[in-house]
Design a protein around this nucleic acid. Structure first.
Lengths: 154, 154
DNA sequence: ACAACCTACATGATGCGTCATATATTTCCC
DNA sequence: GGGAAATATATGACGCATCATGTAGGTTGT
């Protein structure tokens, strides 16, 4: 006991700045997206995955791998998106347990309409003013921490 | 129109890695904290602020400034924490509209018990394996983006 | 071929976060 | 000093996220 290595001053400040930055940034992005196109960030991510998929169709477990979401979160979210007509659930031929999530026309229209404004906002609030090096560093740090998380997963 | 500058490959990868890293990291921290001490990350942050305050007391608006939360989020969260006995709401003498949030004994015990495990987890999952330089640069990037957010706030 | 197990997915309960709105004070200014 | 505007806080409604659990359909080993 009492072997805790507390964060020093710089670590604490860096940590808080990082947490706060992410929070403020996603709050802004979320509001912009919601206000301009009626989508949440979560909606957007789901639609991106489906748009990138052949035929706009994915099995829920594929979506889950792409998004790294909890299974039940995805299921609930799909239910809500389905209710709003952004996606449809279909039966899966190859696997009786399974389902297929399909992008609807409305879903496609929604993300096509939303994407430019969203990307502009990401650029304006985040990338503009950061150097390539800074972006590369952030990427590197992110991957490192992700690796660490995976390594400790079991 | 059509003037959208889309994210190039590296930007897109960096962005997704960053978003995913934060999500996975806070999910882990949240679970550890919840499992080991029954607190959410949000609880923890509130308790930290109160612990750092003289007498363990703060006005809600001071808490809000420290946390950078939405006012109603804070209010709701305080209600829940109050129900669990972690904080108490008191009347404010100097301002008839105001309130004072006070750390209870149970609240103090909770954060004292939770802190070592939480800090260890933050260190293990995040700081260990990052160099001082990487931390410093992340800090710098975070502050830069925060500045950008503030500048665009109006 | 059948039991044990695993996988894909859904759902109910509950805590969390945001928006819109309400209410009670101050504060400001003429 | 009295009304307008601003400030401090609370609340109801509703979508979102997680946990625990359920169910149906596959897979594997004997």
């Amino acid at each position: 006991m009492s072997g805790t290595r507390w964060l020093d001053d710089e670590e604490q400040r860096a940590w808080r700045a990082f947490i706060r930055m992410h929070g403020q940034l996603t709050a802004r992005l979320s509001r912009q997206l919601q206000a301009d196109s009626g989508l949440s960030l979560a909606d957007y991510e789901v639609l991106v995955q489906l748009t990138d998929a052949p035929d706009g169709r994915l099995r829920p477990f594929e979506l889950q791998r792409g998004l790294q979401w909890e299974q039940s979160r995805l299921s609930h979210h799909l239910t809500r998106m389905q209710r709003r007509g952004l996606v449809a659930r279909e039966e899966c031929d190859e696997d009786g347990r399974g389902a297929v999530v399909a992008l609807t026309d409305a879903g496609r229209r929604a993300i096509v309409a939303a994407a430019p404004g969203h990307v502009d906002t990401v650029r304006r609030l985040f990338f503009d003013g950061l150097t390539r090096d800074q972006v590369a560093l952030l990427h590197q740090v992110s991957d490192h921490v992700l690796g660490r998380l995976d390594a400790t997963a079991g």
